[in-house]
């Protein structure tokens, strides 16, 4: 693997772009990297470590600091679970409960049934997956064009993209709803999907990432070899963009899953996403906080699963080391 990486820059025009790219891609395989990882004397072995950026071993201090970060990050979610395992009455008392009570499953069951979370989870999965796939794909394409290609008005268009991020979107939901209503789409899932199929954030993010992470020389070399644009995208851009695509996918998925203002305006509980469905909880003059917390917990769980799926993809470093070296 390292041999492949090393020979690559020395023979820019000799092998076909495809071969080069595939070799380069193999460098990105986590499995391969793991195998190539020097077992002993890791710190000394640094010169042989190509690929995924720096991979120094974490010391005990690192683990300690990360543990602190982790505890602070997890605490509210854990407390949500604690609250979901109690009764509404107990939650009003001081000090608030700090450990689990016996009502978790009862409350989860109640939240699931009252909010009709089955349909909602299905809809949210559909919505969030579609938005994620489309945002990641189109952001990568546009971000690549902005980062590495020359075209008329590219500067102005990028500024326009960034500029629109500066205007808060909360008010735009009013004209947007009027429009969706004209299209006859009230309460339908596409009203939630279509407006967020692409985001200015995503395009700007990919642009900034690719400016740095994708060596221009690599594209040039592929061009010299006569590679067409789709081929360059497939074999050079996508592999290089993979860690950023995974992060963007992760962030977009969570955003789409948790987005509530527009979905609540646009949908109702007959065809809801999870955030819309959760509104069915806590009704009556005495909302049951424990059930509300159980709903919040249930709505977060699928995200944790999605995290595990995406999280593994955030391994990076393809061939840049070899290119620039």
């Amino acid at each position: 693997m390292s041999a492949g990486d090393l020979t690559f820059p020395q023979a820019p025009g000799e092998a076909g772009a495809k071969t080069k790219a595939t070799k380069a891609q193999t460098g990105g395989e986590p499995g391969t990297r793991a195998k190539a990882r020097p077992r002993g004397g890791r710190r000394l072995g640094r010169p042989r470590m190509t690929g995924a950026g720096r991979q120094l071993d974490a010391g005990p201090v690192t683990y300690a600091v990360l543990t602190v970060f982790a505890l602070v990050s997890l605490a509210p979610l854990v407390w949500t679970a604690v609250a979901a395992s109690r009764t509404d009455r107990r939650l009003a008392e001081t000090p608030p409960p700090l450990w689990f009570g016996g009502n978790l499953f009862k409350n989860l069951q109640a939240a699931w049934d009252q909010a009709g979370l089955g349909t909602a989870m299905f809809n949210s999965t559909l919505v969030a997956t579609t938005i994620t796939v489309s945002t990641v794909l189109f952001s990568t394409l546009a971000g690549f064009a902005f980062a590495k290609l020359r075209f008329r008005f590219s500067g102005a268009l990028l500024l326009l993209t960034i500029g629109t991020m500066m205007i808060p979107p909360q008010l735009a939901v009013v004209p947007l709803y009027l429009w969706m209503s004209d299209l006859g789409w009230s309460n339908r899932l596409q009203t939630v999907v279509l407006p967020t199929l692409v985001t200015a954030f995503g395009t700007f993010f990919m642009r900034q990432y690719l400016v740095q992470a994708l060596p221009t020389e690599l594209i040039e070399a592929a061009r010299v070899d006569g590679a067409s644009s789709p081929r360059i995208l497939w074999h050079v851009v996508f592999p290089a963009a993979r860690p950023a695509m995974a992060v963007l996918g992760l962030l977009t998925f969570v955003f789409a899953w948790n987005d509530f203002l527009w979905p609540i305006i646009a949908l109702n509980q007959q065809n809801p996403t999870v955030q819309v469905a959760l509104n069915s909880l806590g009704t009556g003059y005495v909302p049951d906080q424990a059930v509300i917390m159980a709903g919040a917990l249930l709505s977060t769980l699928p995200l944790l699963i999605a995290f595990l799926l995406f999280g593994k993809q955030i391994v990076g470093g393809i061939m840049q080391g070899a290119i620039k070296g």
């Binding site: 990432y209 992060v247 962030l251 470093g317």
Partner: peptide
């Protein structure tokens, strides 16, 4: 914080290791 950390992490992973070397 974690959100931004992940964004940084993605970019860090693209830093060629030979620079560190």
């Amino acid at each position: 914080t974690g959100y931004n950390a992940l964004i940084y992490l993605a970019a860090m992973q693209a830093i060629p290791s030979d620079l560190y070397e």
